[in-house]
Write a protein that binds this DNA or RNA. Structure first.
Length: 542
RNA sequence: GCCGACGUAGCUCAAUGGUAGAGCAGGGGACUCUUAAUCCCUUGGUUGUGGGUUCGACUCCCUCCGUCGGUGCCA
């Protein structure tokens, strides 16, 4: 780290001087005490980060000394870089070789300042892309050109005014008449060629990752397009976006350990939501027929390639629909989002991964068939824990021992079925014991009307024909409470208030939860969830 | 939680027990079509932290911190 007095601010009050030739000894040893205002700091005697900062501070002071505000409040911009290039292309196609004139671009200087005597090339980056700037002494005039050369650093935000043209090397560029400093950058940017690769720095300082790695910035733009397309799709289907509490007195709607916090005004412990399900269903009781919410859920559990304790969930509830309707909705929604965000329903996974086709229809595979197909076990026949364990042993399968038949089925699904679901699949009709909020199938009460959309081997979400029988719901909750008492600390407490809501009557409803981060992973071909989250949680550095 | 790897200049990386280096960035100079510009000169280090072994530690050992990978957990 740099000496503290160079952490922008205090050093500005010091006088930067140069004393070439340099003295042998360092005149400013690193020191915790900032120097008093007016202290002379010999730039040529500094090393490391302090040297890099001092060089930029010196230029900042030169700008101020010339009476120019290095952080002006207003700018003028006529074009994004991409639009300026397009405008030139149009003129060129019509036979012109220059223009438009009067272009004013705003953005950050990136890459090297390539100076050759009386001219300089440098690229300016804005959100739409980059354009090369060409500064020439004979075009700008001695004074302005000299000032630009003396004051600019890579990383500075500037406004560049001029005329578009094509260089002899063939690059569409801006012949600059004037450069205005918009925001002086005081710290060096990551290396221009290889960019920033250190994973820890990329995550802790994502802004550096985004500004130096184009594909990262594009991925987060893509994420925004995906979420917007999801809203557009749901809005178009008549769903109403609502907001439910993040801080809840009783967490529910899933099986997970919650984050706890204290709500001072109410003087009680609250939990960060693990799902919004139970509140959204209350909305249906209240007469809203199609609702959705896109929000952060929090589950106090492990982090890996597909799990983040703080993640984004889309849940929607559709009155008078069932899980078959919701399956159709998911197929159409994901394909529509892919088209809107990517322009295609095909996605190629990285590292030689498969190409995935997201267009409907998706495979429908019952849990019973899936387990039968992948392991040869018929879970409808092996319908007790002992029988299922025997069938597993008989086939020599290695499955982590589970306390119940249902959890053993779940284990089989995770180990043998999900890896087979690379192309989009609706894994459906789960054991009722794994689905406490789902309706039973009318023709076979062992299974629930539930499905999980699975793509690239991992769950994108979860859906069911929502259980709206308050008496059965209470029984299911009580069964969960027994499991909790038996040591399953992921089971939520009974939510009596929710049961009371159901008891007033909730229409038949199809419900859905989609892990937005995972959908973004699939649609951007990203195999690690932290790469689709802007600022993933990191342990505080000491 | 467990196992393994990693942490060196602003960035990307070398240096396997014997004086911590390179490229880029930075500083000075030359250069009016470059784009990893080029050429000459050049500054820059508490090797993550704390301890230990040794005549001598970036290197070997231990502690701690952080990150990654695997694994466990995660409707």
């Amino acid at each position: 780290m740099s000496p503290p007095f160079f952490d922008a601010g205090s050093a500005v009050s010091c006088v930067l001087v140069r004393t070439l030739p340099r003295p042998k000894e360092r005149s400013m040893a690193p020191n915790d005490d900032p120097p008093p205002a007016g202290t002379e700091i010999d730039i040529d005697a500094l090393g490391g980060m302090a040297q890099l900062l001092a060089a930029r501070l010196e230029r900042l002071q030169a700008i101020r000394a010339a009476g120019i505000d290095p952080y002006p409040p207003r700018v003028e911009r006529t074009h994004m870089t991409a639009d300026a290039v397009a405008a030139f292309d149009t003129i060129e196609a019509a036979g012109g070789d220059e223009g438009p004139a009067g272009v004013k671009l705003c953005g950050r200087l990136v890459g090297a300042l390539r100076r050759m005597g009386g001219s300089m090339f440098v690229h300016l980056q804005d959100q739409s892309g980059t354009v090369q700037l060409h500064l020439r002494r004979d075009r700008m005039g001695e004074a302005d050109f000299g000032a630009a050369i003396d004051r600019l650093d890579p990383g500075d935000f500037v406004q560049a005014d001029g005329t578009m043209f094509r260089t002899r090397a063939g690059e569409v560029s801006l012949a600059v008449d004037r450069v205005t400093m918009l925001a002086k950058s005081l710290r060096p940017l990551p290396e221009k060629w290889r960019g920033l690769t250190d994973v820890e720095t990329r995550l802790r300082q994502r802004y550096l990752d985004m500004l130096s790695n184009e594909s990262v910035r594009q991925r987060f733009i893509q994420r925004s397009l995906i979420v917007r397309a999801m809203r557009t799709f749901l809005d178009g289907r008549g769903f109403l976006e609502v907001e439910t509490p993040t801080l809840q007195p009783i967490y529910g709607g899933g099986a997970a350990r919650p984050f706890e916090t204290h709500y001072h005004a109410l003087g009680q412990t609250m939990y960060l939501r693990i799902a919004d399900e139970l509140y959204l269903k209350r909305c249906l009781v209240g007469g809203l027929e199609r609702v959705y919410e896109i929000c952060k859920d929090f589950r106090n559990e492990g982090i890996d390639r597909t799990h983040m304790p703080e993640f984004t969930m889309m849940e929607c509830y559709w009155a008078y629909a069932d899980y078959n309707d919701v399956m159709a909705l998911v197929e159409e929604m994901v394909a529509a989002i892919a088209l809107a965000a990517n322009g295609t329903t095909r996605v190629t996974l990285p590292d030689g991964g498969p190409e995935i086709e997201l267009a409907p229809p998706w495979r429908r595979w019952t849990v019973r068939d899936a387990v039968q197909d992948t392991t040869g076990i018929d879970i409808a026949a092996a319908d007790t824990l002992a029988a299922l364990r025997a069938a597993i042993a008989e086939r020599g399968l290695h499955v982590a021992p589970q306390p119940t038949w249902a959890k053993t089925v779940d284990e089989l699904v995770g180990d043998y079925v999900e890896p087979q679901c690379v192309q989009p699949t609706f894994l459906m009709d789960h054991p009722v014991a794994l689905s406490p909020l789902a309706k039973r199938k009318p023709d076979d009460p062992r299974w629930a009307e539930r499905f999980e959309p699975i793509v690239a081997g991992f769950e994108l979400g979860n859906s069911f024909s929502e259980l709206n029988d308050p008496i059965e719901q209470r029984e299911r909750f009580e069964e969960m409470a027994r499991q909790k008492a038996a040591g399953d600390d992921e089971q939520p407490p009974i939510d009596d208030d929710f049961i009371e809501a159901l008891a007033h009557g909730m229409p038949p409803t199809g419900g859905l939860g989609i892990g937005v981060d995972r959908l973004v992973m699939v649609l951007t071909g990203t195999m690690n969830i932290r790469e689709v989250v802007l600022f993933p949680a990191m342990r505080t550095e000491e």
